[in-house]
């Protein structure tokens, strides 16, 4: 167990593009949480876009190259064994690239050719382990470790944990999930539930925890996204939640923005607060709201946090 913990105490950190912009609160709270827990994040040197959805849908092999370059920087330029990506999109893409490089000779060929021309060492499958921020806290600290460090318990806070669609899908690129006791589940993920429960929160049974938020529909048909999000927010409230905890910057921004739009456009008003799990854990450890970027969120949860003695 000690070996597992030490493996994740210092990891290469790949924030990705979203965390440098709209998801900055997630970046701030992830770094603050790591610091408060005594964990070390080493930014991936000279990282690039993972290929996001846009590149992947036009040319999946090009996305594989872009993601492989990030892993190559971590492995070959920094000597790191673990890359932590808090964004579901980045995490998903790095895992997909890893899978493709393991199983597809054409992908290996394209990555090899492009890496050589670009002037860096080609990434070889298996050089690094890509993990999500949830894995990082779960493996490096664990629930017992969190319980020991909690200063402001989240006791009495009813939370719906929303994982979004990319954290667990497609199943075959996450071979470590569904692999026995203690592993994450692809059909009913629980790592966020586990961590927030350790911080004192009361998790509600939330049947839409991996449902689509319509994130990618936003540009083509905002009304579809708004209705999907409104439905998720209503379901969270119907489940008794006061807060939706998120672990993806795209989902988080979508929930926040469409919560406002749903009220204006559809007359659907919901009061559930939307906070990153890293913000909630940081607050539980005694960090101030500003330290975890609560002021950077679109939705205003300061009043709620003050009521709960967390601000």
């Amino acid at each position: 167990m000690t070996d597992t913990k030490s493996r994740y105490r210092e990891v290469a950190y790949y924030p990705g593009c979203a965390l440098e912009g709209s998801g900055h609160a997630y970046n701030r709270s992830t770094r603050a949480l790591g610091k408060a827990l005594g964990l070390k994040l080493k930014d991936v040197k000279n990282w690039n876009c993972c290929g996001a959805m846009e590149v992947k849908n036009i040319d999946p092999k090009l996305q594989t190259y872009l993601s492989s370059r990030v892993m190559s920087m971590a492995a070959n330029e920094m000597g790191q064994e673990v890359v932590m990506a808090p964004c579901n999109g980045c995490y998903h893409n790095l895992k997909k690239a890893e899978y493709d490089l393991q199983h597809d000779a054409d992908s290996r060929d394209v990555v090899g050719r492009l890496s050589e021309k670009a002037g860096h060492t080609a990434y070889q499958a298996g050089q690094v382990e890509t993990i999500h921020a949830l894995d990082w806290i779960k493996q490096a600290i664990g629930e017992d470790g969190l319980r020991e460090r909690v200063r402001n318990s989240l006791q009495g806070m009813r939370i719906a944990n929303y994982y979004g669609c990319m954290y667990t899908r497609p199943r075959h690129i996450f071979p470590e999930k569904d692999s026995g006791p203690g592993s994450e589940s692809t059909s009913k993920p629980h790592f966020m539930d586990d961590l927030l429960a350790a911080a004192g929160a009361e998790n509600v049974d939330f049947p839409l925890k991996t449902a689509c938020c319509g994130g990618a529909h936003t540009l083509s048909d905002s009304d579809t996204s708004t209705r999907l999000v409104a439905n998720i927010l209503q379901a969270a409230e119907a489940a008794g939640a006061e807060v939706i905890a998120t672990e993806c910057p795209t989902c988080h921004s979508g929930l926040e923005m469409h919560q406002i739009r749903a009220e204006k456009r559809l007359g659907i008003k919901t009061d559930v607060k939307i906070l990153y799990f890293t913000q909630l854990l940081g607050l539980a450890l005694g960090l101030k709201p500003r330290k975890v970027g609560v002021q950077e969120n679109i939705s205003d949860s300061m009043g709620f946090l003050k009521e709960r003695g967390l601000a």
């Binding site: 900055h24 970046n27 701030r28 000279n46 190259y65 370059r69 021309k117 670009a118 002037g119 950077e296």
Partner: peptide, 22 residues
Amino acid sequence: MGLATFVAPRTRGWSGARAAIE
């Protein structure tokens, strides 16, 4: 939203990768 909103991060030495991608 923080400095990063206004100062986008840049990947250094990208010209080789750009040429290879093109």
